[in-house]
Nucleic acid binder design. Structure first.
Length: 673
DNA sequence: TTGCCTCGAGATCA
DNA sequence: CTCGAGGCAA
């Protein structure tokens, strides 16, 4: 069927018109027409597209909701990493941040900061190519996230095509996806009426909505987005300042925070923070603080990054919400290494969007400092937004006749002696593998994904295996028979076979995984990898003297002694042998020469009065493979400036060479070494 | 640490 | 229908 010219033109006109109304409504918050008129346009477009399916394009406003559920989310490599922000928890820390920024930039006057509220949602990266939304990805670990394009397309406030003109061919925009409070309440109201479970808080509802495989469900969730930053942009930045660049997004149909402001100096930032804090309740979205960014891109570039966070931005967080509750009990948990940790069992209380019923007390020093007792009324908060924490006891509300919490002399699980070495905070059960708690925890660790990755061997199953005495040491899991498993809960034929298969599959592994899985104290994934690479074979590690172990990067005297002690214990060696007899194997390689000179290629210049003799610092740098020069040139990597530094500092500034104070030097060293 | 989603499979009931 | 496990996000 041929398409009438006027229909084709009408379709194009309708799309422009609908996109324009969306823009007015969502971005500018100034609708031009009543909803009924908007609906009429949309229906007319749907009618025409129904008549001429060949006119349908992915960016048509009728095409937000894809028809088919996904099988799984794909992975996305971020071209520019999605970083996290440093936090400031009080005015003091914010002032420190401002001072550091000015010092690094060598500016006496006030810095311009772009400020906006920090939304409590989840971070997202949108990629537009030739003006069309091609990809939306979650943050993930910062360098690799999940592709959730199908779901993000359903969000009304995210344009499928950029409006206007002048956008770069490739534009990555970053922002926060969230659910407005009003939408959240309506959503939960609906869920309650339908007899479904309500969401605990808007953030989790938003995160859950984005993880739906079926975009039709996502489309029913009232998600929204504000843009606050950038990823890759073809042709470079959109303006000289962050605020100007962000404001350009508006013309292209992207939504930005109406609260965005440029402020001069730290005093203005503080005032802004207090202003937002006062209006917090009235805003239609949850926020957990305010973000300040150095506005000028040139200054941002000069400031650079520290590991995973930019030096040019900070999040000033609101004080964590605190609630009162009662301590029902203090129990002692025994971990994989035997560490005995006091945990407060609390009367469940809703704090910061979740129900908290447990809070670790870390160690006895902490218990004594806070003097927490059973029956106490305490303030609880979520520290750093995540970990529940007992803030303090309200002594006036302590019931009479309470007792101080004391460290048990014997392990609550196995009864072995508990020892707290002088000067150490952590107490330990001496039961070793005799202790079922340690046994269980070490098996769980062994089976975990980053270790041996034995699918199906989860917490509940391990608890059962240990409880029933089917497993005594790590190696025993490989001699489990289907018949033995059959007696356990939720373990019928199929599950048992799956587990046996998973065990079999895990036998092919790598030295680093195996080393990590063994659970040697202080040996995490990174250290296991370093050891494996350095020595190449298990035998070499087993026999290595402490001095040799210490030559491995990241291994100091403490880690080295733990490693050596582990391999001196005969029962550990027996378990390893048993595991190998069970069929665990890996490729043993030749030891890899690790670069002995982590600072190779860097040139330092020392100037001014430093806290130690210059020769001493110089020797250290040389030992790490760096060059130390007497004069500053373009090739100088860093100038380390102490008190009363003179012309060399001047020269460094004029050449744009990075300048470090001693603290900065330590940071750089930890970065490279 | 908690909450959410998804999947597979066991448990339960008609 | 319910549970356990796994994965993700803050």
């Amino acid at each position: 069927m041929s398409i009438h010219k006027e229909d084709r033109e009408r379709v194009a006109w309708l799309r422009d018109e609908i996109d324009r109304h969306n823009y007015q409504y969502y971005v500018l918050d100034e609708p031009l027409v009543p909803d009924s008129e908007y609906d009429r346009l949309l229906r007319e477009l749907q009618g025409l597209e129904h008549k001429y399916p060949e006119l349908i394009t992915p960016e048509s406003p009728t095409q937000r909701v894809g028809a088919k559920p996904l099988a799984a989310f794909g992975e996305v490599q971020h071209r520019l990493p999605m970083l996290s922000l440093d936090n400031a928890f009080d005015e003091h820390e914010l002032a420190d941040f401002d001072r550091r920024v000015r010092e690094r930039l060598g500016i006496e006057g006030e810095i311009s900061y772009a400020a906006e509220p920090k939304l409590d949602g989840l971070a997202i990266s949108l990629r537009y190519e030739d003006g069309l939304l091609m990809q939306a990805a979650t943050r993930g670990d910062g360098s690799q996230g999940e592709e959730v394009t199908q779901n993000v397309r359903t969000i009304d406030t995210v344009p499928l095509r950029l409006l206007g003109q002048g956008w770069p061919r490739v534009l990555e925009v970053r922002g926060e996806i969230y659910i407005p409070k009003s939408g959240f309440n309506a959503l939960n109201e609906r869920a309650r009426k339908a007899g479904e479970k309500a969401f605990a808080n808007p953030r989790n509802a938003a995160a859950g909505s984005l993880r739906q495989l079926d975009p039709r469900i996502t489309a029913k969730r009232p998600l929204a987005m504000y843009c606050y930053g950038f990823g890759e942009i073809e042709g470079g930045p959109l303006a000289d300042t962050h605020s100007a660049a962000i404001k350009r997004l508006v013309a292209w149909g992207l939504r930005i925070s109406p609260e965005l402001q440029v402020l001069e100096g730290v005093e203005a930032c503080l005032a802004y923070y207090h202003g937002i804090a006062e209006r917090r309740e009235g805003l239609d979205y949850d926020i957990d603080g305010v973000v300040f960014k150095v506005d000028a891109f040139a200054q941002q570039q000069q400031l650079g990054f520290v590991s995973r966070a930019p030096r040019w931005a900070i999040a000033q967080k609101f004080p964590a919400q605190e609630e009162l509750t009662r301590v029902e009990a203090v129990e002692f948990q025994v971990g994989r290494t035997g560490a005995v940790t006091p945990v407060a069992r609390l009367e469940p209380v809703f704090v910061g969007g979740v129900t908290v019923s447990n809070a670790t007390l870390h160690n006895m020093d902490e218990v004594e400092r806070k003097d927490v007792r059973v029956g106490d009324t305490v303030f609880v908060r979520r520290a750093g937004d995540v970990i529940p924490e007992v803030v303090r006891v309200i002594p006036e509300r302590r019931p009479s006749q309470t007792e101080q919490i004391t460290l048990p002399t014997s392990c609550p699980v196995c009864g072995s002696e508990v020892i707290k070495p002088e000067g150490e905070a952590v107490a330990r059960c001496t039961g070793g593998l005799f202790c079922s708690a340690q046994r269980g925890a070490s098996i769980k660790h062994f089976a975990s994904r980053r270790a041996m990755d034995i699918e199906g061997l989860g917490d509940k199953l391990v608890d059962q295996l240990v409880e029933q005495g089917l497993v005594h040491d790590l190696a025993d899991i490989y001699s489990l028979k289907k018949a033995q498993l059959a007696g356990l809960e939720r373990m019928a034929e199929k599950s048992a076979q799956n587990l046996i298969d998973a065990l079999e599959k895990s036998k092919q592994t790598s030295l680093e995984r195996f080393l990590f899985a063994l659970g040697v104290r202080e040996v995490g994934e990174a250290t296991a990898r370093n050891l494996a690479r350095h020595f190449g074979s298990l035998a070499a590690i087993e026999q290595a003297p402490v001095e040799e172990l210490q030559t491995v990067s990241d291994v100091g005297p403490i880690v080295a002694s733990h490693v050596a002690a582990f391999f001196r214990q005969s029962h550990n060696l027996e378990v390893i042998e048993k595991l190998q007899r069970a069929g665990i194997q890996w490729q043993e390689g030749a030891p890899v020469e690790l670069p002995q000179h982590p600072l190779a290629g860097l040139t330092f210049v020392l100037t001014g009065t430093l806290s130690r003799p210059r020769d001493e610092i110089k020797a250290e740098l040389l030992a790490l493979g760096a060059k130390v020069s007497g004069s500053v040139s373009k090739k100088t990597s860093y100038v380390v400036a102490g008190e009363a530094a003179g012309s060399k500092l001047e020269k460094a500034r004029s050449l744009g060479v990075e300048i470090l104070d001693e603290a900065g030097l330590v940071q750089v060293l930890t970065q490279y070494v």
